[in-house]
Design a protein around this nucleic acid. Structure first.
Lengths: 368, 368
DNA sequence: GTTAGCACTCCAAATAAATGAGTGCTAACA
DNA sequence: TGTTAGCACTCATTTATTTGGAGTGCTAAC
């Protein structure tokens, strides 16, 4: 007669077990301490005695949702529980991130300055470690090439890609080029290459260009290399981090050994790019993704959770934002904050671009 | 009759005291533990009993060279002792840094990549935290300006400064410019500005240019702003760090509180620029400078020592390298390593520049 | 099915005891 | 007068011991 409420939300858990598990997780998120039956019995509105809770907890343990760090300690959630939690039990919540907006909108600096700022603001706000990657440019088109003579031994190739990413390449030359030659090369390159994406520039095009450039085919070759690189966007994307030391605030991570490895990871930044690009692949939930423990592709983060969001600035320029904290991070808040940040970035970009066209003061941008 | 050996090296210390102090420091550098009289009596070749040493140590303590962390503990050197040590007692020593050279020479990447590498190599090699700043360009001359039209709403100003630092600035325009106008502007700017340093471009020159550019004076104004910035070199110099977590290896720094602050300092990088620019000022000992404890201009480093070196790549492009570790860092080794690194960098730059002229494959360089 | 009660476990914190490195001082020695 | 041995004392560190309490599992009663 008591099976009325069997919701079967997770296949193997009835409603009460779910509620209890939920309570355990919430509690552990806050306290970071193993949580016992008594606590749950008082905390929740289930009106169950600690003994009953104990029975249920025993079941939950058998099902692999919670474990005891040692006999006669409270229970802590497993990765499986966290996964269930973020998948099904998290409700949306909007928080006070008003100051966040404020801090951002006054940042009309260069792109990299702004992204650094984003990382910083997020770190301060969440008390976790954060990481932001600059928008990677993919499948973009060449907008414009300019060859200029710097002196007798080198020329400068300036390449502008859609989205106003600029790249400069110094090219050493053996013999001086005349202004005329440079003009010709400019015309040659621009007429053939403008508007092309990386896929459009095939071998035929390349040989054609080299032929037409005559004795300067070597230089053209080098310029094409540079173009390829510029369009592809620096393979190793730029990564900005902040709040790394927040890690030390969580005892379960602060143990010298692990903490060192983690902080190193943040310092090296290379590994972080892996997470970034992985998160750029998937694009399910609003671009928000959660990696719990081993799910993250980085060894040193196996005791952490990582929440990533991707933002898109139009024209295929996509970057990612990630927050790294202990498994018991406040998923609700983090997801909320990330969403806001993502929106904020995207709308800001739109606004900026509009005002730029209608003649606002400056729209400077360094290269990638 | 016993005053024969009175060398008076440091004004208030006789030879024996010096030797003892020396021994104390050396020992403490290695062990990190307070060192007692007995250790010294055995360690050194002075053939003095521990009791005698105790007497001398008592004197040294009174003179402020050593202290006891607590009663009945051994002594540890004070900042004063370290200062004496680096000033007078350090002998030159060349170490095995051969691999260092190897690791560097294969780095013919872009400048920033290389500097990152320098930081990394140093960190791995010394086990301290390191920091490298990119060469700041000062008092440099404008080599070349190029204005190009990107589309109807914006133009691109590419500015090359001596030393091949390149800077791009997008400038929004209200009405499209004809190719002719752009050509005129290019000629106008290059004829007047090429070869000028910041000081040379005075108000007269500016108004002259604006007049001659007619209705486009506003654009010229913006370009001049960009030029000013490019020549001055980004005020906040680029800073690369590595090995931050090495800090955790030294117990006296690893205390969560301090370590966090220190690592944060390294992460923020802003404060580090202060040290860098301070070290760029002085130029005494081969460009090597040692800051002990409070001597460094950064609060969070009051328990550290900082050794800085400056390197110069010709044409006034100077950068700095710094190593941060505990006060008991191995000064000898650090100074040696820094010297080598400095030399290595400077010779590499020379070589690179030479080979560049004689037509070597590629000499790419990003902007600042 | 739920709950109270009880015995049992085991971590964590507190307390106590043992250790030992190091000092300062005094008195003897060369 | 400088050097040294010896001794009593201090105090951080280590180790052992005790205690408290949070938590569990089980059983019996409701």
């Amino acid at each position: 007669m008591a099976k009325q409420e069997k919701k079967e939300t997770a296949g193997e858990l009835d409603g009460r077990k779910l509620k209890i598990l939920h309570a355990i997780i919430r509690n552990y998120l806050e306290s970071g301490e193993p949580v016992g039956s008594r606590t749950i019995s008082k905390y929740t509105d289930l009106n169950l005695s600690s003994a009953t809770i104990r029975n249920e907890m025993s079941d939950l343990e058998e099902l692999g949702y919670i474990v005891q760090p040692h006999t006669s300690a409270g229970r802590i959630p497993t990765d499986k529980a966290y996964r269930l939690y973020v998948d099904t039990m998290m409700e949306e919540k909007d928080r006070e991130i008003s100051d966040l907006k404020g801090m951002l909108t006054q940042a009309e600096e260069k792109m990299d300055q702004m992204l650094k700022n984003v990382a910083r603001v997020l770190a301060v706000n969440t008390n976790y470690a954060t990481m932001v990657t600059a928008p990677a440019i993919r499948g973009n088109k060449l907008k414009f090439i300019q060859i200029s003579k710097v002196d007798d031994t080198q020329i400068l190739a300036t390449i502008v890609v859609e989205g106003n990413v600029i790249r400069n390449n110094m090219i050493a030359i053996e013999d001086p080029l005349s202004d005329e030659t440079i003009l010709k090369l400019n015309i040659l390159l621009n007429t053939h290459l403008t508007g092309m994406s990386l896929d459009d520039i095939n071998l035929g095009m390349i040989t054609l260009l080299k032929e037409q450039s005559g004795i300067h085919s070597k230089i053209v070759g080098e310029i094409l290399d540079a173009v390829a690189q510029a369009i592809r966007g620096d393979e190793d994307l730029e990564v900005y981090t902040s709040g790394t030391t927040n890690i030390l605030k969580y005892p379960e991570l602060a143990d010298n050994q692990k903490a060192g490895a983690l902080i190193s990871t943040f310092e090296e930044k290379q590994a972080l790019a892996r997470i970034a690009s992985e998160s750029l692949e998937g694009n399910e939930n609003n671009g928000i993704q959660v990696y719990i423990g081993d799910e993250a592709p980085i060894e040193s983060m196996k005791d952490c959770s990582v929440v990533t969001a991707t933002y898109e600035l139009g024209e295929g320029m996509r970057g990612s934002i990630a927050i790294v904290g202990p498994k018991r991070m406040d998923y609700d808040k983090v997801v909320g904050t990330l969403k806001t940040m993502k929106d904020e970035l995207e709308t800001m970009y739109k606004k900026k671009n509009k005002s730029g066209k209608s003649g606002s003061p400056k729209d400077k941008r360094g290269d990638n």
